[in-house]
Computed example of a mutant assay.
Amino acid sequence: MDQCMKCPEQQYANTERDHCLHKAVAFLAYDDPLGMTLVCTALCFSVLTAVVLGVFANNRCLSYILLIALIFCFLCSLLFIGRPSTATCVLQQITFGVVFTMAVSTILAKTITVVLAFKVTAPGRKMRQWLLSGVLNSIIPICSLIQLVLCGIWLGTSPPFVDTEAHSEHGHIILVCNKGSVISFYCVLGYLGSLALASFTVAFQARNLPDMFNEAKFLTFSILVFWSVWVTFLPVYHSTKGKIMVAVEVFSILASSAGLLGCIFVPKCYIILFRPEKNSLKGLKDTAKARSFI
């Protein structure tokens, strides 16, 4: 032809470059190999968390809340897979923010409980009364309520919506969820990070607790894993496009949730299931005697 014409954004040129073809609509689908792998991983970890819920019983209330929150953390990743809609785009971010806030605030409450259990021994002190009354459990609804307010502001100003990417893959229009207000998205992540930092700070104060029952070590390591995953997520997320960007976000959700589950509960379940002799007062005393001789 004497004059070249550029194809519209929703179309692309054929191999002979003499005709425009319509681009196919694509997204991270459940029947896609990558999507299927992520779905199976999320479901397997959810079932594993439910099994741990049936096994583990120490510090029952906070542990049960944390395990239930982790189940929802794994399951919320399913909202990121499939054809995006306005409802799923909104639910993705709200569910993600609230359930992870529940999980991290529960870890904060567990950490404070562990520290107070060892450091508050005088019978008349107010902190001891807080520990016995269970007032520390109010940390979870308060922190979750603050996150709900942040999410409400996000939805009221610039909520997530369905968007298209016409140039990330040749011959395809990728359907993705646009975050809407990027500032609100980082406020949600920043608030989660501040809770994780608070948990780490409190757990670090308990580094000199007895080794026989130093749950603070597991809590500290779990928060470090959580931080590592999400700090790595940010640059990788912004360097990808299309379906891979969604997959990176889903992988980060699964990896951080699995890190919290594994670091906190796997050592305890190992003792309960495979070393039951250590899961008793006599076992603790024998361990203390052995270490005193060493």
Rank of each mutant, 00 (worst) to 15 (best):
S194N: 06
S199E: 07
D32T: 11
E9K: 14
V55T: 11
Y30L: 15
I146Y: 13
G152A: 14
D18S: 09
E277M: 13
V90L: 04
F221D: 02
T121I: 00
T106C: 03
R291P: 05
I94K: 02
V231M: 02
V25I: 15
C7G: 13
A290H: 10
I174M: 08
C187Q: 07
L67P: 12
I153R: 09
L209C: 03
P84I: 04
L43F: 05
A258M: 09
F251P: 06
I153G: 11
C7F: 12
A166F: 13
C187N: 06
M102N: 02
C76H: 11
S184G: 06
I140C: 13
I272W: 05
E165I: 12
N137D: 11
T201C: 13
L281W: 13
G180P: 00
L131S: 07
A42W: 12
C7D: 13
V25D: 15
D2W: 14
K282L: 15
I153F: 12
K268G: 08
K268R: 09
P123Y: 00
F100D: 01
I68S: 14
I107Q: 00
Q129C: 11
S199M: 08
V231I: 04
C44Q: 09
G259Y: 12
P276I: 14
K282F: 15
E169Y: 10
C61Y: 15
F118S: 01
N279R: 08
G262V: 10
S63R: 07
L116F: 02
C4W: 15
L70Y: 05
L192W: 06
A42D: 08
V115M: 04
G242S: 03
M5S: 15
I244P: 00
R125T: 05
V39S: 13
D31M: 11
C76V: 11
S138M: 14
C76W: 09
G190M: 02
T113A: 00
E169K: 09
A42G: 08
A258D: 06
W154Q: 11
K110C: 00
R128E: 03
M245H: 03
P160T: 04
A196L: 03
T101V: 04
K126F: 09
L145H: 10
A50M: 15
A166S: 13
N59G: 12
F293A: 07
E249H: 01
I272H: 05
I140H: 12
A26F: 12
H238L: 01
K126I: 05
D163K: 06
F218V: 06
Q205S: 07
Y237L: 01
G242H: 01
T88W: 07
V246W: 00
W230F: 01
K282W: 15
